[in-house]
Amino acid sequence: MQVKFDVEGGNFSKAGHASSQVKKILKQLNVAPKIIKSIVVALYEAEVNIVAHAYNGTIEVTIDPQKILINLSDNGPGIADISLAMQEGFSTASQEVRQMGFGAGMGLPNIKRNTDEFEIESEVGKGTKLIMTKFF
């Protein structure tokens, strides 16, 4: 099964919409609640990242009986130093994003923590791609 979502940069009132839909789908598929939580927390962090940093992006979700695979791709400023961005506490988030309760430099580490496989690729001035997998 495959689903695709478009994500609008800067639109915080819609941030979390895709994650919420994925949560509903996984519930319907009777995936264990703890696994669902890990997946949607990771996805939500990544979705908020697109809204907070990029101009726009897409989320493609593929679900098979063994796993969920999520591909996130955005058009945005990209990340100059990924290893720095993966460090807890490092953030380039705006004041606005911080006022929403995010931007503490915990998103990417939390995504890694909640997934079984996690890959990140980025090009400055173009955008960032994330691939995450979680086995059921």
Binding site: S13, S19, S20, K23, V41, Y44
Partner: peptide, 13 residues
């Protein structure tokens, strides 16, 4: 912290 993302965060967590 009272905004929509507080509710979203609770939903996900």
């Amino acid at each position: 912290m009272a905004n929509l993302q507080t509710i979203r965060t609770a939903e996900m967590a």
